[in-house]
Amino acid sequence: MKFKVLYYVNQFFGQVGGEDKAGMAPEFKEEAVGPAMGFNGLLQGEGEVIGTIICGDNFFNENKEEALEFIMNIIKEKQPDIVVAGPAFNAGRYGMACAGVAKAVVDELNIPVVSGMYEENPGVEACKSKAIVVKTADSAAGMREALPVMANITKKLVKGEELGLPEEEGYIPQGKRLTVFAEKRGSQRAVEMLLARLNGGEFKTELPMPEFDKVDPAPAIKDLSKATIALVTSGGIVPNGNPDRIQSASAQKWGKYDVSQRDALTGEYYTIHGGYDPVYANEIPDRVVPLDVLKEFEKEGVIGKVYDYFYTTTGTGTSVANATKFGTEIGKELKEAGVDGVILTST
């Protein structure tokens, strides 16, 4: 049986018209239109384009919800094995529309999506982690090169074959660092890389340096004696027995614990963090989460109040994506609770 492809194009490639038709609402045609025709041929009988959705670029970007509702209904009804959008080359609005379709289809229907764009198209950043975006030229002159690459990837995805490296397959990296086996052991690769450098030869790093976000510090609290202060830690301090089963490394979750009735953590808390010597933290967990001192400050009037809960997770090996998620969630709760300041302890 042939696999089913549903195709998405804009008004121009859908042969409706140019900029004057960019406001057209989405339509569905039960045939291959524009690039979908060439694409269909490239599937060489293994698959078939069962229809084409055509939507004006302005309409999509200005009425995204309405456009997506129509498009998603068609896709749900037709149940394709895969959705192909574009290629959009360097057309920004078209790229963003392809990205919008791709994200909705992958997230809500779990159907794979293949698209094609020029590297600088803003649609790339918007969907490359969800869809496979083939690297194309910046104009439609690159259609002839783009379609076979897209068709080849489409076939592999439908068959469940693993895609090779982006540069081999012709797509823009999704940003996933996957662990694979190399032919030579790491030390041998290091020696060869060093020899190449010493001899002025070519070498390629296996790990380009990451780029970091910069966070501006918050303005100082003007009057501490009226401030509510919360404690948040990545030091893995949890109630004895670790009731929420927070991981000792590479945390997938965080916990919060009521300490409003306590003067210190010592006695009923310990650390489950797998990245430092726990002996001293287990003796006195307040060394990591200084509740004892903060409660004294509260009594002395140095600070207004210690917030009722402290928040905790494990920092070691925890991905930045998870840490960002935890931080956003915890920050939201603290903000809603009217907390003025946070002491964030690492280990």
Binding site: L163, L165, P166, P173, Q174, G175, K176, R177, L178, T179, V180, F181, A182, E183, K184, R185, G186, S187, Q188, R189, A190, E206, L207, A249, S250, G317
Partner: peptide, 20 residues
């Protein structure tokens, strides 16, 4: 993380990471 020597940083084993 839990597998002995899997990502050995003295390059004793064969793993690497590639950008996909």
């Amino acid at each position: 993380n839990a597998v002995i020597g899997s990502t050995s940083e003295i390059g004793y084993h064969y793993c690497t990471a590639k950008l996909y």
